[in-house]
Deep mutational scan, measured.
Amino acid sequence: MWEAGIQHIELEKGSKGLGFSILDYQDPIDPASTVIIIRSLVPGGIAEKDGRLLPGDRLMFVNDVNLENSSLEEAVEALKGAPSGTVRIGVAKPLP
């Protein structure tokens, strides 16, 4: 389960991407759907250096692409398709 509020994070995407990987996970509230979760951070990558994204965070959007009900493929496309420079990411943090 995740917090209702969405944290807005801006990262600078370079030639090596944003520095994290994702996975799809069965939604605990709606078993028929999936949620997109941050799986891991690349050591020394943009996301790890920034410090705000953590494994277990739920990915909600990338720039103007809503990922609340997306497939893993759609989420990967949104991340890979984001141009270099500032990328806006929304995440919901896990409940304590």
Rank of each mutant, 00 (worst) to 15 (best):
L11V: 08
V87C: 05
G44Y: 06
T34A: 13
T86A: 07
R88F: 05
L95R: 12
N63F: 01
L54A: 15
K93H: 12
T34N: 12
Q7I: 15
D30C: 12
K49F: 06
E73G: 05
F20A: 02
M1S: 05
I29W: 10
K16N: 05
K49T: 12
P55L: 06
E74M: 15
E77D: 12
G56E: 03
P28L: 10
S40P: 01
K13V: 09
E12L: 10
A78L: 10
I9V: 04
R58Q: 04
M60H: 05
V62R: 00
I29K: 11
K49E: 15
G56Y: 06
S84C: 13
L11Q: 01
A32P: 15
L11Y: 06
G14L: 06
I6V: 12
E77R: 12
A78P: 00
L72K: 09
G44I: 01
A47Q: 01
L67Y: 04
L95F: 11
E48F: 05
G19R: 00
K16A: 08
I9P: 00
A32H: 12
I36C: 08
I37S: 13
L59N: 01
S84W: 12
L23S: 15
G44F: 06
F61C: 11
K80S: 08
G90A: 06
M60F: 08
W2S: 12
R39N: 15
V65A: 12
S40G: 15
L18A: 03
P55K: 15
I37F: 05
N66G: 12
P83A: 10
K13F: 12
A32T: 09
P31T: 09
P83H: 14
V65Y: 08
G44C: 10
K16T: 08
G5W: 05
E77P: 03
E10T: 08
H8Y: 15
G85D: 04
G5L: 07
P96D: 08
T86V: 13
V76D: 15
A32S: 13
G5T: 11
H8E: 06
L72P: 07
E10R: 09
F20E: 00
A92L: 13
G90V: 03
E3W: 04
G17Y: 02
L18F: 06
L18R: 00
G56K: 12
V35M: 14
L67D: 00
I36S: 03
V65K: 09
P31E: 13
V62K: 01
L41V: 08
E3N: 05
S40R: 07
A78N: 05
E48A: 06
I46V: 08
A32R: 14
E68Y: 10
G85V: 02
I38R: 00
V76F: 13
P55V: 11
W2V: 04
L53P: 04
G19L: 01
L54Q: 14
V35T: 14
S40C: 15
I29G: 15
R52S: 04
A92K: 14
L72D: 02
L67R: 01
I6N: 06
G45V: 02
G17V: 02
F61D: 04
V35R: 15
D24N: 10
S71D: 14
R88P: 02
L59C: 02
S84L: 14
A47I: 02
G17T: 05
A92Q: 12
L23W: 15
V87M: 06
P43E: 14
D50F: 02
I22L: 15
A32G: 10
D24S: 05
S40Q: 14
A82T: 11
L18C: 04
K93D: 02
H8T: 12
V35K: 13
W2H: 11
F20T: 00
W2K: 15
M1W: 03
L23N: 15
A78Y: 05
A32E: 08
T86I: 10
M60T: 08
G90E: 02
I36A: 03
E10F: 09
S70Q: 08
G81K: 12
D64G: 06
G19I: 01
I36D: 01
L59E: 00
A4P: 06
S15V: 09
D50G: 06
P96N: 07
G81I: 11
I36P: 14
D27M: 07
A75Q: 01
L67A: 02
G14F: 09
V35F: 09
W2I: 05
I9G: 01
G56I: 00
L67V: 09
E68V: 10
L59R: 01
P43A: 15
S21A: 08
S40I: 02
T86G: 14
S15A: 05
T34D: 08
P43V: 10
G56R: 05
G56N: 10
N63S: 03
P83E: 06
P94L: 06
M1G: 07
R58V: 02
I89E: 01
G85W: 01
I38M: 02
L11K: 01
E77W: 11
I22P: 03
V91T: 13
A4R: 07
R58I: 02
I37V: 15
E68L: 08
V62S: 01
A47L: 02
V87A: 05
K16G: 05
N63D: 08
L59P: 00
E12C: 11
V65D: 13
G45M: 05
L41N: 02
D64Q: 12
G51T: 06
G17R: 03
G81V: 13
T86E: 05
G14D: 11
Q7N: 14
Q7T: 10
L23M: 11
P28A: 13
V35N: 15
I38W: 01
I36H: 09
L59T: 01
I37D: 01
G90Q: 05
R88Q: 08
I46Q: 12
Y25P: 08
H8G: 04
V87S: 03
E3Y: 06
N63G: 14
Q7P: 02
Q26S: 10
L18H: 03
S40N: 10
P43H: 09
E77G: 08
L95T: 10
R58G: 02
I37P: 00
A82E: 11
R88K: 14
E68S: 14
P83N: 08
N69V: 09
K80W: 10
K13H: 13
E73A: 13
Y25E: 14
A4H: 07
N66Q: 15
L54C: 06
G5V: 09
E68H: 06
I38C: 06
K49L: 15
G14Q: 12
G14N: 10
D57L: 10
R88V: 11
R58W: 01
M1H: 12
N63E: 12
R39H: 14
A4C: 08
N66E: 11
G19E: 05
E12Q: 09
Q7H: 14
V91Q: 02
L18D: 01
L23V: 12
L72E: 15
L11M: 08
I29S: 11
A78G: 04
I38P: 00
D27T: 11
D27Q: 11
D57A: 13
Y25T: 15
N66V: 08
L79H: 00
F61Q: 09
F61E: 10
L95S: 13
E12M: 10
G51N: 06
E10N: 12
F20C: 02
E48Q: 10
A75W: 02
L67E: 00
E77A: 13
L59K: 01
P31Y: 09
A92H: 12
E77H: 11
R39Y: 04
S33H: 12
L54D: 13
P83D: 04
S15R: 07
A75P: 00
Q26A: 12
I22C: 15
S70N: 12
G44D: 15
I38H: 00
N66H: 12
L95Y: 11
E68F: 06
K13M: 13
E68M: 11
V91F: 07
S84I: 12
I6D: 03
S21D: 15
L54P: 00
I37N: 08
S15W: 05
A4T: 13
K13D: 03
Q7M: 08
L54K: 15
E68R: 07
D24C: 03
G51C: 04
N66R: 07
T34G: 15
N69K: 12
E3Q: 06
L53H: 00
I29E: 15
K16M: 10
L11A: 01
V35G: 07
E12I: 14
S84G: 14
